[in-house]
């Protein structure tokens, strides 16, 4: 086989590039804690046709035993519950864990202007944790086509300073 020396050099550079990209991704994944949802993130599965017997029957913000907040949310044709109609209020600078599922079709959950982005699949629970460092309003949108009124599926998160977060609206365990 006849490979020109320039081409050998280029193949070397290409392999370096690939190794560099893989390293950067792994660095972000391990050191910077930038991760993605997945089945080993503790979400698990749920019977989408029988959500009445699960915490998803009363979607909203809860406080866990170790003092963190978690949000049970339904993404459904064509709203987020909670989040649409009335905004979802969350504290800044605090760990918040989302558990999102869908009772009907596949949806997307994206918080505009952030890296919070997950598929929402009936039968699967998307579980992921984040921290909002800055108070303010954040738009939620469905980024997976879910039917004729898909473009109206939106909501709002209101992030308030931790001292102003009102715990009286939490869902009882």
């Amino acid at each position: 086989m006849h490979i020109h020396r320039f081409e050998k050099l280029w193949i070397g550079l290409s392999l370096f590039l690939i190794a560099a990209f893989i390293s950067i991704v792994m660095y972000g994944f391990t050191v910077l804690d930038l991760t993605v949802p997945g089945s080993d993130r503790g979400g698990g599965t749920v019977d989408a046709m029988n959500l009445a017997e699960t915490p998803f029957a009363t979607p909203g913000v809860r406080k866990t035993e170790d003092g963190e907040y978690e949000v049970y949310m339904l993404a459904r044709q064509y709203f987020f519950q909670p989040g649409s109609g009335q905004s979802l209020t969350l504290p800044a600078e605090t760990r918040v864990t989302f558990k999102v599922t869908s009772p009907d079709v596949i949806h997307g959950f994206q918080v505009a202007g952030t890296n919070i982005n997950s598929m929402v699949i009936p039968g699967q629970i998307s579980r992921f944790t984040t921290v909002f460092s800055d108070p303010g309003e954040y738009g939620i949108l469905c980024n997976e086509y879910c039917g004729a009124a898909h473009h109206t599926m939106e909501g709002l998160i209101e992030v308030v300073p931790p001292s102003e977060f009102d715990e009286s609206n939490l869902i009882e365990q």
Partner: peptide
Amino acid sequence: QYLDPGIGM
């Protein structure tokens, strides 16, 4: 499917 729940890391 990077952002799918239900697929292992």
